[in-house]
Amino acid sequence: MHEWYYVGGYWGPRKETALECARRAELFFHMLARCDPSFTQWYRGGRGAPRSLPGHPVRPEVEEWEQLFLRGRLRTDVGKEVIEEFGFMEYVWNAKNKERTRVEFSCGAYSPGAVNTCLLRPPEVGPLRERILSAPLLAEVLTSLATAWDPDFAIAGSNEMVRLVRKRKGEVRVGWLTYLSRRLGTVPPLPAPVRIEPVGTLGWLLVLSPEPMSASNPDHVAFTSRVRELLDRAGLIRRPDPVTGEE
């Protein structure tokens, strides 16, 4: 079974300007570039991009990201007025077709029940996909995401595993790797081979296994479910308000 792996960070309503989001994006891509050479150059869409390139090159600078986020504001159908409380949306990629990694942002939203996200989608096929889907590299990516965006939680895993393990809509998800903010509570002792690492003073990174965890492996599903249950008992899974619009 081909599984769709992704890295996703999620946080609730947080009013931030385009400049504040741009500063977070600059830090995130600076840290991401140190994780893997393929994360060095990113591109955006738009008319007039060179045909030899995947798109318009994005400069990893605050000024450029601020303009991208301002361009990505949602507007009303009538009058095209900016809907301030919906924040900003943008996405970039680093290669063509199925060999690309794509990063998507929804940030600065502060309407009631809003969900802000940072999603990284590895290539669908190829050797780069295999390189990215390793515990050490994904741990670096999650640490970068947590440091730059300060989400409530973040995971690296497959959509299929999430669907099998999740019990309630809008809950904190548990994946192959999971980041939990200290705002959620304190991480309890967890069974081997789970590794728990602090991410600065922000939270904890949980690595459930040094090897890839698959939804097609019943043992992996059972172990992930067990870890989720222990975190739930510690009060780390249920979120105070239902969240919609998540990946």
Rank of each mutant, 00 (worst) to 15 (best):
T17H: 05
E197I: 05
W65S: 11
L119T: 14
T40C: 15
L68K: 05
R166E: 14
V165S: 12
N217D: 14
V103E: 05
V103S: 10
L180Y: 03
L68D: 02
D150W: 10
P57R: 02
S106K: 12
F69S: 04
L137Y: 11
N217G: 01
L142M: 08
E130W: 09
A156F: 07
L231T: 06
W65E: 08
V103N: 09
G48H: 08
R226H: 10
D150V: 15
R166M: 14
V115P: 00
L208S: 01
W176F: 03
S106Y: 10
Y91W: 12
E63S: 15
A156G: 10
L27D: 09
L68I: 15
V115T: 12
E26T: 15
P193W: 00
V174D: 08
P54V: 07
L70R: 13
R131A: 15
L53R: 03
E247P: 11
V172Y: 06
L74M: 08
L137W: 13
R73H: 06
R183L: 07
E63Q: 12
V227Y: 11
S209G: 02
C107E: 11
T101Y: 10
G108E: 01
E16V: 06
A114T: 00
E229Q: 14
A146R: 05
G185E: 03
P60I: 12
G8M: 05
L68R: 11
H56Y: 03
C107D: 06
G72H: 01
L53T: 07
E85N: 03
V141K: 11
K15D: 09
G203Q: 00
F39L: 14
A135T: 11
S38M: 12
Y5R: 08
A109K: 00
H2S: 13
P60R: 13
E64W: 10
G87I: 05
G203E: 01
R44T: 15
S225D: 11
Q41L: 15
G245A: 02
G79S: 06
K98L: 15
K167N: 10
S111P: 00
A114F: 00
G87Q: 01
K169H: 14
L74H: 04
V141L: 09
L145R: 09
A33D: 11
G9T: 07
R44W: 06
P218A: 06
D36L: 13
W4L: 14
A222G: 04
E211N: 09
R233Q: 13
F39P: 09
E81W: 06
A135E: 15
R121D: 12
F223R: 02
Y179D: 01
Y43H: 04
L145G: 08
L142F: 10
N97C: 11
Y6W: 15
A95M: 11
D152T: 15
K15Y: 02
D219P: 06
L231E: 05
T17L: 00
R183T: 13
V174W: 10
A215S: 15
R182S: 09
G9N: 10
C35I: 12
L190V: 04
P189D: 09
G126K: 09
D150C: 03
R14D: 07
K169E: 13
N94E: 12
L205Q: 05
G48C: 11
N217H: 03
F223Y: 02
G46F: 08
R121L: 13
N116Q: 01
P57M: 01
L70I: 10
L230N: 05
E66G: 09
V82N: 03
W11L: 06
P13C: 01
T101C: 13
H2L: 14
Y6S: 12
L230Q: 11
K15C: 02
R226K: 13
D232C: 14
